[in-house]
């Protein structure tokens, strides 16, 4: 039976979390890291057995877990990979995550997989493809999923709508929830010259369940590298964003040049303070 996302909405979860990285395993395995949830890269645990699954099950005993994927490829014109979805479902059934998320992008053709989050042209045809694929994924997984806005380094001459219009239409048609990556909005706004606040204002805020924060590499083209602290501009955009959103899970991504956990926890405290400040100001 087809999954009905409208009838199975994802309950909001409010909290602050980090990604599970090998360097910090001891802190998360002992349950001593002061976070409200842990996010993991789904594909790293879509394996037959061994240490990765043993670690994840132990971490899950201490924390709610979010499965964040990079290979669903909802933008692929050739459709979603049913074997991939079956493996993801097996993992989700085993871990019982808060939710399952992936990116608004494509990663593969029928012949090759780039293992990168490639950009989509924002056309009506692409929107049809994305919505069909999200529907199939939600049916196969038996759950509503979150889709994350990408960072991108080029746009297409064929574009027929803005990215935020594409995302709003996607959420409306599929009932999917949204993972709003504030850093990605900032990166793409710099690369493509749009107004980051206008982008975020145009999204359906009631569909947002999670927010990502990360660092990036400045330059002529700004690159989403996740290898440094969140910058001041992104913190400011985050605070303005939190005035618009209901309860969400906020997470800081760090995938390279990974610092000691204590350093990331200080960043997470900054997110907590800005969120609280935003909500106090909004209430006043």
């Amino acid at each position: 039976m087809a999954h009905d996302p409208m009838a199975h909405d994802i309950p909001p979860f409010s909290g602050f979390g980090l990604g599970l990285r090998r360097e910090h395993y001891p802190d998360f395995l002992s349950g001593e890291a002061a976070v409200d949830f842990v996010e993991v890269i789904s594909e790293n645990f879509m394996v037959d057995g061994g240490r990765p699954l043993a670690v994840l099950e132990q971490v899950r005993a201490h924390y709610p877990v979010i499965l964040h994927g990079v290979s669903l490829s909802v933008g692929s014109a050739h459709g979603v990979d049913t074997d991939y979805l079956a493996r993801l479902r097996t993992l989700a059934d085993r871990i019982e995550p808060l939710w399952v998320s992936d990116h608004l992008c494509w990663t593969r053709t029928s012949a090759h997989n780039s293992h990168d989050l490639l950009p989509l042209p924002y056309t009506r045809e692409a929107l049809d493809v994305v919505c069909d694929n999200i529907g199939r994924a939600q049916d196969a997984l038996g759950r509503t999923i979150l889709l994350e806005n990408p960072s991108s380094y080029l746009t297409f001459p064929e574009d027929e709508m803005a990215e935020w219009e594409f995302i709003a239409a996607m959420a409306q048609r599929t009932g999917c929830a949204l993972l709003l990556d504030v850093n990605n909005v900032h990166v793409s706004s710099r690369n493509h010259g749009f107004d980051a606040d206008a982008y975020i204002a145009a999204l359906p805020h009631d569909r947002v369940r999670q927010v990502h924060l990360a660092g990036h590499t400045p330059g002529e083209i700004v690159i989403d590298t996740h290898d440094r602290a969140v910058c001041d501009d992104v913190w400011a955009l985050y605070q303005r964003t939190m005035r618009l959103l209901g309860p969400v899970a906020t997470m800081i991504e760090r995938d390279d040049a990974i610092p000691p956990l204590a350093e990331l926890l200080v960043e997470l405290d900054q997110a907590r303070a800005l969120d609280e400040g935003a909500r106090v100001r909004e209430a006043a």
Partner: peptide
């Protein structure tokens, strides 16, 4: 979209592959 993605993938895989006609320096970067 299928043909566009096949062409884009070929351009990612092969650094010598020609980019679509009309792409400017910004898109090439």
């Amino acid at each position: 979209l299928a043909r566009q993605q096949a062409a884009f993938m070929a351009q990612v895989l092969d650094e010598e592959a020609a980019l679509p006609p009309g792409w400017d320096a910004r898109r090439a970067a």
